[in-house]
Simulated assay, not measured.
Amino acid sequence: MPSPIPNEILSEIFSNLNFETENYFIPSQKDLFSCLLVNQQWCVNAIKVLWAEPMPVDKDRDMLRIYAKVIRMYLLSIDGQDKQQLIDYGHRFANSNSKNSRRFQKSLQILYGSKDYPTSQSAHVLNDLPTSQKSLLSSYTNTQSSHTLLFDYPSFLRYLDLDRLLLGIVHLINPRAKSRQFGDILIFQAILKMLAKRCKNLLSLVIDNQMEDSLTRFDDMFIMLNPEVLPLIYPIKETFITINFPINKIFLTLSCFCKHLEYIEITTIQQFNLQETDNSGIASLIVSQISLRTLVLRGSFQFLDQILYALPSQSASLKDLTFSCADFSECAPLHSIAACKNLRELRFWECYNLSDEICEPLVNCEFEKLRVIDLEETHSKILMEWKNKRENKEDNKLG
């Protein structure tokens, strides 16, 4: 009988079961569901990968149903106090007889014990799923008075997108809704508090409140600052933040509690008529890191120099630096980038106002490890000449 494949290798294989969309790769849930059915070892390892990112980025109808099922499973994991608060909240509005109130109460039925939510009826929770998917989303057994999960699903979470979490909650309460629902923020907060207790190895956090279809609002992000939620973000190594304008309190909080970020990507669309702000929070987030490897800045940043001056603090570790749609018109010469001697990849995508004076320190610096200079849609004669000179030098070495 052949030896079983080591768990580490299985996990690596399953983690790479992706399919490519227009702009990114997403986990292939169909393939992972198939892996659940092979044997017990494959099931255990596939479950961990599936629940590392249980809400893939696609927002089609089938995926929204999966989102709602994930929220149901998370509700099974919240502690007694938060569970009772949600139940009490539902009872408080029971007499309103509104559709939203009734939907909210129905979505919380799974929180009740056997008296109010008989175990004989529990099968309806996931009975509309294909058999293979029940292995992921209904892997629990009924006891005399409660549900017992076969796996500690929240502990497997690695990638958390706040907007997708809210989307799953909204779809759970009312599958036809496209906007915020009655009581959704209470469920949102209760789940985040539960995850903070159960998920100890969160890798990536996505905060997005500026897209047209985004459900997260400005105030929602401050739920992350709740002392009972903060432990969730301590271990993250990646953060993707898309906002209308830099919110210093968010970035300052991350800089205080997240010191091990290796990848930071910030996208901003400045609303100068609504909010005058600076970038001191982003600068503090950069400076506070122990070993930042990749920094991606997309959009228009007022007071860009504040961010640039923070870069030398990461000169030993910073390998990949990208600017996209950035305006360098009011920037000082780029000595700060020149100080990052270990850069391997440097990109200026659709950037403008990169004058000769601003670029001079950069083009006169020797970057021994720099291998990629990408100037897509960036029209700077001095940078283009610098790029061509370096490429010719590399070609001569190879020749």
Results as ranks from 00 to 15, higher is better:
T242E: 09
I87D: 02
D60T: 02
D60I: 02
V372K: 15
Y234F: 11
W42I: 05
S3R: 13
S11T: 13
Q271H: 08
L160H: 05
Y140P: 01
L254Q: 10
L76W: 00
S179M: 06
S324T: 12
P312C: 05
N209D: 04
E238F: 07
L129H: 11
S3A: 14
T322Q: 12
L162C: 11
Q133S: 09
G113W: 00
L318F: 11
N18M: 13
F218E: 08
L321F: 06
D184S: 10
L17V: 02
A94P: 02
N273G: 08
A94M: 06
L295I: 11
I290F: 11
L137Q: 10
A339Q: 14
M63T: 10
N142P: 04
N18C: 14
K134P: 01
V70G: 12
E238K: 13
E360L: 15
D184E: 12
A46M: 02
S98Q: 03
P118L: 13
F182Q: 00
L205Y: 04
L126Q: 15
S11K: 13
R390T: 07
D208V: 03
K178N: 10
E394M: 11
P154Y: 03
A190F: 05
L343F: 10
Q271G: 04
K115I: 04
S179L: 01
L136N: 09
S300T: 09
A338K: 08
A177T: 02
T277E: 15
Q81D: 10
S15W: 06
Q81G: 07
S120A: 06
A190K: 01
L274C: 14
T141K: 14
E391Y: 15
G90W: 05
D79I: 02
R344N: 12
G80R: 13
D395H: 15
E357H: 15
I223Y: 11
